[in-house]
C-alpha cells in the first residue's frame, strides 16, 4: 500500500497528469505533423498543442443561455477524471499507482467515460449540432464498446485474472498477446480509432458536417479542458493497448517506443481513410470487429 503523497504524485506528476499530458501532446503533434507531411505541407511546430492550451485557458468562457450550465461544466471534468484514473491503473514501465484485483474492468469503464462525457457535453449545450454529435457518439459507442470489451476479456479468461499487472507480467515471460490472439488484437486496434476520435470513425466530431459536434458551444477554458482530454487520450489509449496486447514494457523507454509505434499506425490509418457515414461505421464494427473478437474470445474459453 502506497502512502498518500506518493499516490498524489503518481496521479498528478509522474506517471499521471503532467507526464501523460506532455507525452500525449507530443503524440498529438506527431499526428498533425504526419497528416501535414502526407498532404505535402510543413505542419505545426512541436509546441503547438501547449500553445493552444495556454491560449484557450486565457480566453473567456461563455455559457449559452440555452445550455444546462452544471452539466456543461461537469462534462469535461468527468472526462479528464476518467482518463486520469484509468492512467493511474496502467502499469507504465515498472508498476502502476493503483493496483488491485479487477482493475481491468474498472479501467474499461473509466476509459468509456470520455465518450459518455462527450454525449453529456453535446446534449447539455443546447445546440442542434451538439445533439446530432451526441447521437452519433452514442450509436458509434454501441458499435465499438462490445468488440472492445470482448477482446479485452479474452485476455482475462486466458490468464484467469482480471488484473492488468498480471496480464503484463504474463506477457513479459511468455511473449506478447498479439501473437497468440491476432484477431482480438485487430478488433481492439479498430476500436481504438473511435476512442481517440480519428478517421474513419470521427463522425461524432465531423467538423465538415456538424461544425464542432458536441463541442460546438464550448469556448475558452472549458474547450481547453476538452483539449486536455484530447492530449491525454493520445497517450492513455495507446498505452492501454500496449499493456494489453503488445507486452507492456520492461522500462519506460521501451513502453514509450511501443506507444509511439501505435500512434504512428493510428495516424497513418487516419490520414489514408475518408470518413464513414455513421451507419456505415456502426455496421463496420458489428460486421468485422465483433466476429473477429468473438472468434478469439471463444478460442480463449476453449483453451483455458
Amino acid at each position: 500500500m502506497t502512502s498518500i503523497p506518493e499516490t498524489l504524485i503518481g496521479l498528478l506528476v509522474y506517471p499521471g497528469f503532467l507526464f501523460s499530458l506532455v507525452v500525449g501532446g507530443l503524440f498529438y503533434w506527431l499526428y498533425r505533423k504526419i497528416k501535414a507531411r502526407f498532404q505535402a505541407r510543413i505542419g505545426p511546430p512541436c509546441y503547438q498543442f501547449f500553445i493552444d492550451l495556454m491560449k484557450l485557458f486565457s480566453k473567456e468562457s461563455i455559457t449559452p443561455y440555452t445550455a444546462g450550465s452544471t452539466m456543461l461544466v461537469l462534462a469535461p471534468i468527468l472526462s479528464v477524471t476518467g482518463l486520469l484514473l484509468a492512467e493511474a491503473m496502467l502499469p507504465i514501465g515498472s508498476g502502476s499507482v493503483l493496483e488491485f484485483e479487477g482493475d481491468l474492468i474498472v479501467a474499461l469503464y473509466l476509459l468509456a467515460l470520455p465518450g459518455i462525457a462527450m454525449m453529456i457535453a453535446g446534449t447539455s449545450s443546447g445546440s442542434p449540432y451538439g445533439s446530432v454529435g451526441s447521437a452519433r457518439e452514442a450509436s458509434l459507442m454501441v458499435g465499438y464498446e462490445l468488440p472492445y470489451a470482448l477482446s479485452v476479456l479474452t485476455l482475462g479468461f486466458y490468464v484467469k485474472s482480471l488484473s492488468l499487472s498480471v496480464i503484463v507480467r504474463y506477457q513479459l515471460v511468455n511473449g506478447a498477446f498479439f501473437l497468440r490472439y491476432p484477431m482480438a488484437t485487430l478488433a481492439f486496434l479498430l476500436c481504438l480509432l473511435p476512442k481517440v476520435g480519428r478517421r474513419p470513425f470521427d463522425a461524432p466530431e465531423a467538423d465538415t458536417e456538424i461544425i464542432g459536434g458536441p463541442l460546438t458551444e464550448y469556448s475558452g477554458a472549458l474547450l481547453g479542458l476538452f483539449e486536455v482530454v484530447n492530449g491525454l487520450r493520445w497517450f492513455v489509449i495507446p498505452a492501454f493497448a500496449v499493456n494489453l496486447f503488445f507486452g507492456g514494457g520492461a522500462n519506460i523507454l521501451e513502453f514509450l517506443l511501443k506507444s509511439l509505434g501505435l500512434v504512428l499506425l493510428l495516424s497513418i490509418l487516419d490520414v489514408i481513410h475518408p470518413r464513414y457515414r455513421i451507419d456505415q461505421g456502426f455496421k463496420f464494427f458489428l460486421k468485422w470487429a465483433l466476429p473477429l473478437s468473438l472468434v478469439d474470445f471463444v478460442r480463449s474459453l476453449v483453451l483455458s
Partner: peptide, 21 residues
C-alpha cells in the same frame, strides 16, 4: 491548402464562433 499551409503558424479554421479568435 498545402501550397500556402497556414497551419504551420498555428492557424486553424473553425466552424463555430465559440472556438474562434
Amino acid at each position: 491548402t498545402p501550397r500556402y499551409d497556414v497551419e504551420r503558424f498555428g492557424v486553424l479554421q473553425k466552424g463555430t464562433p465559440r472556438h474562434a479568435d
